[in-house]
Design a binder for these strands. Structure first.
Lengths: 208, 208
DNA sequence: ACATTTTTATATACGCGTAAACTTTTTACT
DNA sequence: AGTAAAAAGTTTACGCGTATATAAAAATGT
């Protein structure tokens, strides 16, 4: 939080990292509950402060902004999403079927937890630069590695080849599009998730 | 703006539709200039009111909210964008190439106008039912028809067949995923838009 | 003990979007 | 002309995120 660490001398000592992290965790836990229950924008810092038991401005000792509390929760939620995905590995008879199942688990997680989806992908007032920073800072991207591995194997091409990169980016964007469309445009009668994902996987395996 | 129209009787008469629309147009024009110059969030209603020459609250006689001013501008601009998309029809040597160009125009529009993308697809906050209503109201969905037509022809299948429906839904979701990923996750070095779209089109043409 | 220094925590204040209360303007009816 | 009514327009007020000013707490140096 603070720029430099003072080693010794006069003055009240900084909170220990442990104490600070404990408080951050406590705030984050309460924020997560409130955000999921009532939505990010509906929960004010004054309200959150009251629930945590501190003044609104005291929260700023632990998080630089309200938005920063949110991005912190993203990490936690995305980890949850990929736990679901990891649980499927090595369960299906063949790789192709397993990739489909993994894609369904990934998309399914967000559809089953639309509040999480809204928190991560649709929280209002979040600028591009914020998301960009988040994606770079946290290793969300490394989580996509699993898709690379499956496609390299299924396509019988090296993991680092340009065509695997193209195919995987195509698959990932397609999955996000399926999620996004099914969740946010419910007025349209989409083809069912499983069929759409089968098509996405099929395309990513066979595309040039 | 108002629920019911009073035909006659006592009381000051409502502004004529012409007068009201003139004022709306004037406000919208100034808002567009300011939003483009300084950004939506940086322009306050107090500031906009001053520029237009009325009190902040008087603006609410003509638009129900600040966001509504922006959506109004968006409607105007998106109509132009779809004219652009339509303008591509019949220009390319073959249908397949033309579909690619149309997809690129569609995705490119949103990437060139990320504020509009955020407004329509990420206006999360309280109600995505608002977004849903807007999308349905402006029948954006009926604009998807163009994708159905191209795929029916390219796949040599009837427009109403289940496989054309599957393929088109696959293409549309993929396009939205490409948009969404490129716009909101700029920290990741995605394959370029054109290549991704080529893959999306390829998949939609060949998928079962 | 007491002053000094640094950190933590609170209180105050600002501009924001806009709801609600209020005032002004414009009409019709007596 | 005077009054009632309704829309237009203004003022005031609220809660918001948070910058800034201030106070309180907790350590060291004398």
């Amino acid at each position: 939080m603070d720029e430099k660490e003072r080693v010794k001398g006069r003055g009240r000592p900084s909170l220990s990292d442990a104490a600070k992290n404990a408080k951050r965790t406590e705030i984050a836990a309460i924020a997560l509950r409130l955000f999921l229950e009532e939505g990010f924008e509906s929960v004010s810092m004054r309200r959150l402060g009251k629930e945590v038991g501190m003044t609104p401005m005291a929260l700023y000792r632990y998080f630089p902004s309200k938005l920063d509390i949110l991005t912190n929760l993203w990490v936690y939620i995305i980890d949850l999403a990929f736990e679901n995905v990891a649980a499927i590995k090595g369960q299906a008879p063949d790789q192709r079927e397993e990739l489909c199942q993994i894609c369904n688990a990934y998309v399914g997680y967000w559809r089953d937890n639309p509040a999480h989806y809204h928190l991560v992908f649709m929280s209002g007032g979040v600028s591009n630069s914020t998301v960009k920073l988040f994606v770079e800072q946290q290793n969300v991207i490394t989580k996509f590695e699993i898709f690379f591995m499956y496609l390299a194997e299924l396509r019988c091409e090296p993991r680092e080849s340009a065509s695997v990169k193209r195919a995987t980016d195509g698959l990932i964007t397609h999955l996000h599009g399926i999620m996004h469309s099914l969740i946010t445009m419910q007025g349209y009668s989409w083809t069912d998730q499983k069929t759409l994902i089968e098509g996405a996987v099929s395309g990513s395996v066979h595309v040039a």
